[in-house]
Design a protein around this nucleic acid. Structure first.
Lengths: 69, 69
DNA sequence: TAGAAAACGAAGTGCATCTTCGACTTTCTA
DNA sequence: TAGAAAGTCGAAGATGCACTTCGTTTTCTA
């Protein structure tokens, strides 16, 4: 079973695509770089709490929905 | 509205007490110090992702349940 | 098949978490 | 109500790891 990082990353990719957003657009919305978004989605890094909140807010989701897997 | 950190901390306190655990016991289970647990519960700090996973595993919960508020 | 989107690598920086120590306060309970 | 247990608090320092930057390569898609 993949770790939390990997599962979170895949879930983020899923919800981002569902909203028709590119990594670059999400990066702009969250004030993160595209590399950071890419790293998170691929499970290379996991976001810190503050960015978790930014991401959820930008996607207009509850944080827990990003852990729905 | 309180920030994510604060809400998460309160939720953690709640589920820990529900399971009849002290901060010290949870600290032992997660290999964190009691101060770290205290800081997280009070919303002083937020846990990093790896510790989020440890906490959820120790409490035998899905991570998303810690964000259920 | 051209252009956009995303993956990838590597190296360096920044900073929030975590630790440690000590002291204090609050809550529980015998 | 005294003692123990549990939790709060502060400050200072260490450290892990997210984040950035820059460049290159691969994959997707219109």
């Amino acid at each position: 079973m993949a770790g939390l990082k990997e599962k979170f990353g895949k879930r983020l990719t899923q919800v981002r695509r569902d909203q028709g957003l590119t990594q670059e657009q999400l990066a702009d919305m969250t004030d993160l770089t595209i590399e950071t978004i890419s790293n998170i989605e691929r499970g290379v890094h996991s976001p810190r709490f503050s960015n978790l909140e930014k991401i959820a807010n930008s996607l207009r989701l509850q944080v827990r929905e990003l852990f729905h897997f």
